[in-house]
Amino acid sequence: MKELNSVVCIKPVPDQRFWDKISLDPKTQTLRRAGIPVALGPLDLNALEEALRIKEARGGKVTVISMGPPGTEEILEWAIVLGADEAVLLSDRAFAGADTLATAYVLASGIKKLGDVDLVFLGNESLDGSTGQVGPQVAEFLGMSHLTHITKIDLAGDTKLKARFHIEFGSIDVEVKTPVVIAVDKEVNEPRLANIWGAVWAQERKINCWSINDVEVDKDKIGLPGSPTQVAGVTTIELKRKGEMLTGEPADIARQLVKKLQTDKVLPEALVCRRDVV
């Protein structure tokens, strides 16, 4: 059986245990994240787990890759603790401010440099941005097929695998040829706990740091200048419970409710209330 080399794209996200300490800077419209520890996103753990399982079943190598500022090594190291064979950090001031497209472009450049890659895994979406765009974008840049919302993967021969992806009212089973980019949902597996050997592996296995000079990129497609998405503003949503009792006959209560929802712009104002229904 052919060995399968996997790459897992991971992203540092604020550690969920410290979310209460994150706030919004009203001036810069950015999150105040200073001092907040970073962690591997939950779906990144699922992606890594799937790659590790395939390695255990078929052999090959698992490489984790991330784009981020210095400090991102911490999550790459944790991926090694969990069993990844090597790690790559794409870090350069020129990469900063990237949207999903520019991020995917740089990640794809790093994956191309790695060479012999059969499978690229990602979490379907990140914990903080939640766009779900990076997986398909990486696939496009690499010229690979891609699958998203994957909940089950089975190996089927040397260069094929069967996968199940989640849709709104069920799931679809597909067969796909490698190389392929796979974005996983949490149902795909139960991520493993680290073994104490991980502390040893972290000392022995390498984190390679690649700058703009180490990958082939078009400088117009990276960082803030290469990002077509511009954040226009960020607002904090205050969630408050507001209890209000409506009184009257049931039909009257329904009419009051519709009117309130229209006032609060939950329902369109042009909604026509059918007398026989309400």
Binding site: E77, W78, V81, L193, A194, N195, I196, G198, A199, V200, A202, Q203
Partner: peptide, 18 residues
């Protein structure tokens, strides 16, 4: 050592789940 701090993190993660 850093290795021992990682051991703490591994034990802590184990404790948080198991």
């Amino acid at each position: 050592t850093h290795e021992q701090e990682l051991a703490r993190k591994i034990a802590l993660e184990f404790a948080e789940r198991e």
